[in-house]
Every structure is written in structure tokens, then in C-alpha cells.
Design a protein around this nucleic acid. Structure first.
Lengths: 206, 206
DNA sequence: GTCTATATTTGGATAGAC
DNA sequence: GTCTATCCAAATATAGAC
């Protein structure tokens, strides 16, 4: 076995994640994916049934981990009586950064996630809302405790803005070009720090 | 002439804008576009030469207008000695909202713009940066006058966050479901108001 | 489970009549 | 400028041997 220590299925998932993010779901063909994974073309249909299923699997694999990490981080701060807004924001933002910095396609995945928002594909949106929605609501409860002067509606609006800015930043949409001396890792970390400071002030607006 | 008061070329542009936004550049076929525009398939190649060119034309048509409106709005406030942060922010955000509310595919265009960011397609990114970049820099100069305590770098980071949140909001990515009683127009307008308040506080953060 | 070979579909582009 | 008909490339999916 010279190709990799991972199974065929895992290799396909890894290659798909990278290529879908780089070229989009439609443009990245199964031929490219299987070539990159060093597996046979027919293996995709054997293991996943269809390209659609493969796309969903790629999402599920990472989203489950992101949600778990966010909930863990939230639980750590929410039971402290003196938790701050910045801490809760960090619990929301940090797991996303960590995921985006993860080796083996983390950054690629975040770009894929952003693409999924842009695609107004209803099945995919529903899938994401099922996986993301309840976590966002858990965070909203804690934010509400820290910002009691905001109405529920006002709070949701602001959280939506935070989620948008985060998506954009993590997907590296930015118009800001990375400075030649900076690594992608540091660039992303700086983005996160700026984002927390900005969001903290924005959420606290009168 | 029962189809429309517009020329074949205009009808193709309109249909392309909507379908590209709804289904993506790759997924939306020229066959779908020409069917929706009630024109013949071959008309695309006659008028635009290729699908690539059509995509670029769709962008150019709206982006030119957006940029002009933003620059006009900026010029109106920048020469007032007592212009406020909110006014400059509005000059940046309002034209984008207006465009997104424009009949005949404004909303569709904004979603397309968001998709274009998500596609890490280099030629398209360069095209957008050529059209957007200098306007962003003009705004940065004025913002810098109003926020002199921020370093150039800090300011660029924060403006990038604003641009991200704006893109997200205008493209209707949002996790917030529109309330049944609200029209899309009002929903979008509310999003803009919240965004200005949020961004104003965020930009003013210490 | 993995391969080769192939069926089937779809889409972009063009030739040539009108 | 607009149509019909067609070409050609590329992609998904599957059949069937190993």
C-alpha cells in the first residue's frame, strides 16, 4: 500500500473536500476527485451512490465536529457567573477558526461552507439549518443574558451579522490581500482577533 | 412582438442574472437561460461569443452603476466639514441596498456577487477587485479622517468586516427567517438599518 | 471492493439556411 | 439577427469481469 494509510472512502472524502472548495461543486468533477484521491472513478458510486450524497457526507463530517466544539466551548463559559461577552463570542468564533486552520482541508471546508450559503439550493440550506440552527439558538440564550437590554429580535439581527462577517472572514473572501511576510495561519488568526473586537463593540451598540 | 419590450440581448442578460444567482454559474445552462429569455440558444453565442463573456457582461452592467452611485453618495458627504461616521457608512451601504431592491433582478444580482466571492476563481476575483478596489480605497480615505486614531491596517481590517457583513446581508444568506408579515423589501431595509448601527459601533471600537 | 469499459445525458459551440 | 440541426467534449452513472 503506497498510496496512503487511509481507506478509499476516507481518501475520496478528503480529496472531494479540497476540490469542491477550490473549484465549486459543479466544476469539480468526480474524475478530478478520484484522480486526486488515487482511487478508481467507479469507487465513488460504490461508496456513496452519487455525487450528491458525496457532497452531503463531506459536509456532515466537519459540521458535526464544529457543532460539538462550539457547544463544549459554550458550556465552559456559560456556567461561570462572571462570563464576559468576549468569552462567549470566542466560544462561537474560535472553533470555526480552529477548523479553518486544521490541516487536511480545514480552510477548504470553510470556503465550501460559504459556497453553500451562496448557493440558494433549498435542500442544502435545510440541511445546514438543521445542523446549525439549534447551536445558534443556544448561543442566543447566553448572549441574551449578557445583553438584557436588547430585544430578542434585535439580538437575532446582530447575531446574524456576526455570523455573516465570520463566514466571510473564514472563507477568505476578503478584499485584504495577505501581506507577503504573513502566513495564512497568522492572517486568519488576525482576522479572528479583529472580528471579535469588532463584533463585541457591534453587539454592545445602544 | 409579444415577448417583451426589450431586445434579445437585454432579455438574455436579465434571464442570465436571475438564473446564475439561483443555480450558480456552472449549473445554470445556456439552454435554461435562453428558454427563460424566450430567445434561441444560438443567440447567446451571436451576441456574447461565449458563456464566460456573458457572465462578465452581467457583472459589468450592474457593478458600474453601483460604483457610480457609491461615489456620488460619498462626494455628497465628504465635502461637508461636519459629516458623521453614519453618513459615510450610509453612502457605502445604501447604494448596495437600493441595487438589491431594484426590480428586474436586483436581489438576484447581489446573490450572484456573493457567489463570485465564494468562487475562488482568480480571473473573476481580479475583475471584481479592479471594479471594486478603488472605490473601497476612496471610502477608506474618508473613514480615516473620521477615525484618525486607527492605523491604516486596523481600518482596512474593519472595513473588510463591514464589506463581508454587507455582502452576506444583501445576498440574503441570513439564518434569520423573514417574518411572514414582512415583505422582502422591508426585511432588507431592516437588515440595512441594523447593519449601519452595528458597523458604526464596530468601527468605533477602541 | 476494485477494476475496465461503456452507456447515457448534458451542455457549449457552430454551420448554414433564411 | 434569428432559426434548425448538429457536432463535440465532458461528466455521471452503471454493467460486469476479476
Amino acid at each position: 500500500m503506497i498510496t496512503s494509510q487511509f481507506s478509499t472512502k476516507q481518501r475520496i472524502l478528503g480529496a472531494a473536500e479540497t476540490l469542491f472548495a477550490q473549484h465549486g461543486f459543479e466544476k469539480a468533477s468526480l474524475r478530478q476527485v478520484t484522480a486526486a484521491a488515487h482511487v478508481n472513478l467507479a469507487a465513488v458510486n460504490y461508496h456513496f451512490g452519487s455525487k450528491e450524497n458525496l457532497i452531503e457526507e463531506v459536509f456532515r463530517r466537519r459540521l458535526d465536529r464544529l457543532n460539538t466544539h462550539r457547544q463544549d466551548a459554550l458550556r465552559k463559559v456559560e456556567h461561570q457567573p462572571d462570563s464576559t461577552l468576549d468569552q462567549v463570542l470566542e466560544a462561537f468564533i474560535k472553533p470555526a477558526i480552529d477548523l479553518s486552520l486544521d490541516q487536511n482541508g480545514g480552510g477548504a471546508f470553510m470556503r465550501m461552507l460559504a459556497r453553500a450559503y451562496a448557493e440558494h439550493d433549498q435542500p442544502l440550506r435545510k440541511f445546514l439549518s438543521d445542523n446549525y440552527g439549534h447551536v445558534l439558538r443556544e448561543f442566543a440564550v447566553v448572549f441574551h443574558r449578557l445583553l438584557p437590554h436588547l430585544s430578542k429580535e434585535e439580538l437575532y439581527w446582530r447575531l446574524d451579522i456576526v455570523a455573516g462577517a465570520l463566514t466571510y472572514a473564514m472563507a477568505d473572501f476578503g478584499l485584504i490581500k495577505r501581506r507577503p511576510g504573513t502566513t495564512e495561519r497568522n492572517h486568519r488568526k488576525q482576522a479572528a482577533e479583529h472580528l471579535i473586537r469588532f463584533a463585541s463593540a457591534g453587539l454592545s451598540a445602544p
